[in-house]
Design a protein around this nucleic acid. Structure first.
Lengths: 202, 202
DNA sequence: GACGTATTATTCCGTGCGGAATAGTTGTGA
DNA sequence: TCACAACTATTCCGCACGGAATAATACGTC
């Protein structure tokens, strides 16, 4: 009864829409840009499908073949699969889990670099986030223009909100670094100077 | 020349402070609550150290032994290691990478549940985030009281900022769901009703 | 002083991810 | 028209992760 992976959720969600075979899922995910939200590679996808079939969350409904192409196995979601899908979505919605993003690690160790360099690097990051926000806003505009219900793109709004928050924090922090308001430990790493050990947060 | 993992960065950062053996790193990380920022398990840590030694980023400086306890190998960071550490931190600071958090997947598929249930689940999530924010603020207060420089806890401020943004978004969305302002597709999954296929974002 | 638990320090191994390989088939351009 | 690229559909395999195992010793307590 282990909790499903994000890719697993997507697989079951697709099969909840209609029966299909693995490669069809793969294509659909790319077509819908779900590969921006879920990490998807052929290997993991086929493996997930295989395990779901073994666990009875999905079931073979046909084995087709066109010409001399490889056989393709069409799957359907089972009632058990539907229930697991619902349960997993519920759990993922309700429980906040630490996913150990790497940026906090980097800022946590940023004192290994001089303040000016950190400010510059954060500037690069800020630029790339702004660019990403540009794409997202353009997509949202196109979607709204087509009059599609917001409920289907809540995740885009969510992601956008967090990116905006990060951009704001970066602007603020870069400013504080450049103005010298944010005191920076002596540029470490360059000399053999002793460094003060960092303190525990808790 | 593959890019270092977050755990790898932490390992090198510790050795940049002073020479030590693997278990000492492990203890220090827990003591400093770095296990909240970096995923650390004995297995991964020892493996990382092993590989760094093979790659010349760190070097054995002593093999000690107390009584009949297992030998412990003390390592020091090399110049190459120091350089890799700087380079990796710089890269992690400057480049925004998609890390595929699972919550967007869940909201993306939330239409499988009825609006009321989603609102309730988001409420649970909101509560747990608020609790987490409580801990963080308490920690920050304690740290500030000790007069420690902000530069060392930038990552806590960053995390706090994102959590606040998420909390705000959740409040807003829960409100929209409860007021009915956010139109929700017919509660899916309960009936065999045909569902409209979702649109591509891009 | 004996027994259980926590600490020290490291190794081992199952599991699963994901990049690459495979192999046939349709499309394209010179 | 013939080669070469892109697509269809799936399998394979290496490698890293991390939970559990190990094993000796210190410590607390009844």
């Amino acid at each position: 009864m282990t909790t499903l992976s994000p890719l697993g959720v997507t697989v079951l969600a697709l099969l909840a829409e209609r029966d299909m075979h693995a490669y069809e899922m793969y294509q659909l995910m790319l077509e819908r840009s779900e590969d921006k939200v879920v990490k998807v590679s052929p290997g993991s996808l086929y493996r997930a499908v295989e395990r779901f079939a073994a666990d009875g969350l999905i079931a073979e409904v046909a084995v087709e073949r066109q010409g001399n192409r490889p056989e393709r196995t069409v799957y359907a979601i089972t009632d058990e699969g539907r229930e697991r899908l619902r349960a997993t979505i519920a759990e993922m919605l309700g429980r906040h889990v630490n996913e150990y993003p790497e940026f906090p690690v980097a800022i946590g160790e940023a004192h290994h670099l001089p303040a000016a360099e950190v400010a510059e690097l954060l500037g690069v990051r800020l630029a790339s986030i702004r660019e990403l926000l540009g794409f997202i806003d353009a997509s949202l505009a196109r979607i709204e223009a087509r009059g599609l219900p917001t409920a289907y793109i809540l995740n885009v709004h969510y992601t956008r909100t967090l990116l905006v928050a990060e951009a704001t924090w970066l602007e603020q922090t870069i400013g504080d670094l450049e103005s010298g308001e944010l005191a920076w430990p002596e540029a470490a790493g360059s000399s053999g100077a002793k460094r003060v050990s960092r303190s525990s947060v808790h």
